[in-house]
């Protein structure tokens, strides 16, 4: 975990929306580092800027100012994306959202394999790796099902398999457990922990769900766009009641 170089380094990220009456400073001068192999939870009240930060890290929105490095390469420079967005997304990033967001016309297996095919990995190799990761996430038995034939938890596991299959440096998850019950929520968080450890990814999870916070390594707090990486909350404080 204590690698010399952090997997992710953000420097002075800010994001302003609108102007005049509608002006909102959604993110103010956020700087932080994420290490490979760790799971970090991002906590904060509604409207505090959690999703904003995530979309900037995922190169979905550009920050107003700031820099971002993934590994050695600078992907955001002075508020501008400095690399081919699609290449970075395919090779360095994985996303998991509140709802599973699988492509409805593809089977579970195809949803996962798609990521590799988009990256032009040979079909043989793609099939092999897809099977491996889906088996690891205990979802291989539903490989041929359409997404709407899967339960919420199963869909979320397929989505996690999809997010992990390209062995991303950074896995971004926005309230991935919100639609799940407590035990399934913990299960998903456990999967992130395993993935971070075994696949050496940095995982940033936005969550309102305090029930699984004992499974993360660090907690970031955000309020009114101000990020606090040294929060007074420690994962260990969130013992699992009744377990």
């Amino acid at each position: 975990m204590n690698t010399l170089k952090p997997a992710i380094r953000a420097q002075g990220l800010s994001k302003d929306y609108g102007e005049g009456n509608t002006f909102v400073r959604a993110l103010q001068d956020c700087s932080f580092e994420l290490n490979a192999g760790e799971v970090v939870a991002l906590l904060g009240p509604s409207g505090s800027g959690k999703s904003t930060l995530l979309t900037i890290l995922g190169l979905i929105n550009e920050p107003t100012t700031g820099d971002l490095w993934i590994g050695d390469s600078q992907v955001i420079e002075a508020g501008k994306v400095a690399q081919d967005v699609n290449d970075v997304r395919r090779q360095e990033l994985g996303f998991v959202f509140q709802r599973s967001n699988l492509i409805p016309f593809l089977s579970a297996e195809e949803n996962v394999r798609l990521v590799l095919e988009l990256d032009e990995i040979s079909p043989r190799e793609a099939k092999k790796r897809t099977k491996e990761i889906m088996a690891a996430l205990e979802i291989w038995d539903r490989a041929d099902n359409a997404p709407n034939k899967l339960s919420g938890g199963q869909q979320q596991r397929v989505a996690i398999a999809r997010a992990l299959i390209n062995e991303p440096s950074l896995l971004l998850a926005d309230e991935p457990t919100a639609a799940l019950d407590k035990s399934r929520g913990r299960q998903v968080m456990g999967l992130f922990q395993t993935a971070a450890r075994e696949r050496n990814a940095a995982v940033l999870v936005v969550t309102h769900d305090h029930r699984a916070l004992d499974l993360v390594d660090r907690i970031f707090m955000i309020e009114d766009g101000l990020l606090d990486t040294e929060s007074q909350f420690k994962p260990s404080e969130f013992g699992v009641i009744g377990k």
Binding site: I60, D87, R89, R90, F95, I103, F105, L114, L118
Partner: peptide
């Protein structure tokens, strides 16, 4: 009808030509 899937494909880093 599949604009959501298209947005998702973009998020997965699909090249525009795909």
């Amino acid at each position: 009808d599949k604009i959501h899937s298209i947005a998702l494909l973009k998020l997965l880093g699909a090249k525009p030509q795909v």
